[in-house]
Nucleic acid binder design. Structure first.
Length: 627
RNA sequence: GCCUCGGUGGCUCAGCCCGGUAGAGCGGCAGCCUUGUAAGCUGUUGGUCGCGGGAUCAAAUCCCGCCCGAGGCUCCA
């Protein structure tokens, strides 16, 4: 015999807003609270069926307790909801059981709320994106069995990953069988991705450095993960931003700017939000709810949606330096410049006609990204970063040669994650991962082939026959987050110092490239003349005019990682040879003519962007921001 | 969210276990020194000891509660 069952739809929610509109039945409860808003809770939409008894109600709450303990949720809202059943209990019985559930919930220690029974209500709800956020439970009288029919659980199945190393000869080796000799960082990346290795408890080196070098710092007056940038840090960050933008424009990116906030109700966006589990910053303006963007996708897609273009204009490349993108990561996940809630991300999309064009474009962007890391950040692929490629099994079977061509471009074995089925909106994705001093891996550059969003945003082009077609969309951040770039530079510098090398920033990013130190006050005037001359060549130079000892000035210049130090005194004024203390050359003092030094610096800086020093050039006029 | 650690002058930290009127170094400021490649000397300024409560004659120190931060875990398109 068919047993009647109590039905609960359990939704782990950011918030719910309820408004009781009008009474629907005579039995409706009185309520003094017509409107309510609750946050961070599980909402239990509950239908009581014919034949349910208090025993069922009790078991339902016990099951709920077991489920919610796993999610660490202790606040619940019991919401009588008739629409889950077509064999509803009589209102009087239902109300009785609802009240019983409420009582049991309180006994179990839940912070329990309930909406009034018998009302026509309206509500807005924001559901968390994680896999267990939505669950449907049916509780029977005798066994109280649980049948989780969660969509998300099915999704977890799809997500089953297989980890391999793909070698340059095309051989796909399971990770556990691969010999990592000579590939230590790749091993660390694999371990980090698969096992999530434990690190020693210590402050990451770059966090100390970012403060000591007056680059960036935590801002107690803001939300965690939103940093302040001191003049030197702003200079470095700004140069990186300019450089990446310049490279992307050369590649053909059309630079645009789009809003930082979007209406949560916008139909295309709402779907996209479901697919992106990161938590958002929400904000209210009048009666509408907005979220702060977590990438530049929306803005660019909405713009492209309204644009008119044909196959002749493909690939269509659109770019924004997203300042900022916001992701409300959990507080415990934030780390210095590695993981932030507000960050700067170059985001470049390319719309392409078909898979062949996608592949072609993908290779171009792969090379662009690699060049930005190698030439811009001066990272070395052989010791600083590793490639990971992720794809579905089907895509791999059909595109082996293409995937291998990426590996060959990288010319090193790469980490591969393969999925049985597609769950995300992309079929292929790669990232360059930096491995830091604590053996943590972080993605820098990335690109992916998206096969869903053209439809979702109704982005179409006109083909040769004059018919509308959906393009494929490539999503690329050619450098990764700019903050993460700075993180990588600092971690790399720290690694150098552990190996006995002087830590240093790439010359073109160094706030002070040349420091002039006069031996005594009477040489100040000549030192300033020298400074003006060097400055005229677009070189960042400053002057330590403080009345402290020479030794101390040299020490402080070295602690600031100044690239070249010039000490000026009697000897220098009577000859045209300068004693150049070169940090990169092991702090050796090199005898050079001024013109030789200028030529060397200009040569090393190459065609990178230049900005003048944004601090007083006299050290005596400079405030201290940190340490 | 969970676990761990922490919150004492601008910064880094000691003092707390074992209660008795707040310490050091760095920095800042004033002065001396005028310097030849990683810390010159002297003096001086600066602190509701995160917040609230409790027990005590007496709390930075003991007890309870809370807030904030960091790291780790979890999570991660």
């Amino acid at each position: 015999m068919e047993v009647q069952r109590l039905r609960i739809l359990q939704l782990h929610s950011n918030f719910i807003e309820i408004e009781a509109v009008e009474k629907e039945i005579a039995l409706a409860e009185e309520t003094d609270k017509k409107k309510d808003r609750l946050e961070e809770l599980a909402v239990l939409f509950t239908s009581v069926e014919e034949g349910d008894n208090t025993n069922v109600a009790r078991k339902a709450m016990e099951n709920t307790k077991a489920s919610l303990d796993k999610l660490k949720v202790n606040r619940i809202l019991i919401y009588p909801y008739a629409h889950l059943s077509n064999t509803l209990a009589k209102p009087a019985d239902a109300l009785k059981l609802i009240k019983e559930m409420e009582k049991v919930a309180k006994d179990l220690g839940f912070e329990t709320y309930r909406t009034p029974f018998g009302w026509n209500k309206k509500f807005s709800i924001s559901i968390k994106g994680h896999p267990l956020a939505e669950q449907f439970r049916i509780v029977t009288g005798d066994e109280a069995e649980e049948e989780p029919v969660s969509e998300a659980l099915k999704a977890e199945e799809k997500l089953k990953s297989f980890w391999h190393i793909l070698q340059t000869d095309g051989k796909l080796v399971p990770v556990e069988e691969f010999d990592f000799k000579g590939h230590k960082n790749l091993e660390k990346l694999a371990k980090y991705e698969i096992e999530k290795v434990r690190a020693v408890q210590q402050v990451p080196p770059h966090v100390k450095l970012m403060r000591r070098l007056e680059i960036a710092d935590y801002e107690p007056g803001s939300d965690p993960g939103n940093l302040r940038w001191y003049p030197k840090g702003r200079l470095i960050k700004s140069l990186l931003e300019q450089y990446v933008t310049k490279q992307v424009i050369e590649y053909g990116g059309m630079e645009v700017e789009t809003p930082v906030m979007y209406d949560i109700q916008h139909p295309s966006i709402a779907h996209y939000l479901e697919r992106f589990p990161a938590r958002q910053y929400l904000l209210k303006s009048d009666k509408r709810d907005f979220f702060l963007r977590f990438s530049a996708c929306f803005g660019q897609f909405l713009m492209v949606h309204d644009a008119q273009f044909s196959y002749r204009q493909l690939p269509l490349r659109i770019y924004e330096l997203t300042r900022y993108a916001f992701r409300r990561e959990k507080s415990g996940e934030l780390t210095g410049l590695r993981r932030l809630r507000g960050f700067t991300m170059p985001d470049c999309h390319a719309l392409v006609a078909d898979l062949d064009q996608a592949k072609e474009e993908f290779l171009v962007r792969f090379k662009l990204s690699k060049e930005i890391l190698e030439k811009g950040l001066e990272l070395n692929k052989d010791e600083d970063f590793e490639l990971a490629i992720r794809f579905t099994k089907d895509f791999y079977e059909e595109n082996k040669d293409f995937i291998l061509s990426l590996v060959k471009l990288f010319n090193k074995p790469v980490l591969v994650e393969m999925w049985e089925e597609r769950f995300f909106y992309f079929v292929l994705k790669w990232e360059f991962n930096f491995v830091d001093n604590l053996d943590k891996a972080s993605a820098l550059s990335t690109d992916q082939i998206d096969i869903e969003n053209a439809q979702r945003y109704e982005m179409t082009y006109v083909d040769e026959k004059g018919e509308k077609q959906y393009p494929l969309v490539l999503h690329c951040s050619p450098s990764g987050g700019i903050e993460r770039g700075v993180y990588a530079l600092l971690e790399k510098a720290h690694r150098d110092s552990k190996r006995g090398k002087a830590p240093i920033l790439p010359l073109w990013l160094s706030p002070t490239q040349v420091r002039i130190i006069p031996v005594a006050e009477r040489f100040l005037e000549d030192a300033e003349k020298l400074m003006k001359e060097i400055e005229g060549h677009q070189i960042r130079v400053d002057l330590d005019d403080r009345s402290i000892t020479l030794g101390k000035k040299v020490r402080e210049a070295e602690r600031e990682w100044v690239n070249y130090i010039l000490v000026i005194g009697e000897k220098e004024l009577s000859s045209d040879v300068l004693p150049v203390r070169d940090r990169k050359a092991g702090k050796k003092i090199r005898k050079m003519k001024l013109q030789e030094l200028i030529t060397e610096i200009k040569g090393k800086a190459g065609d990178k962007p230049f900005k003048p020093l944004t601090l007083p050039k006299l050290l005596s006029k400079r405030p201290q921001f940190a340490f």
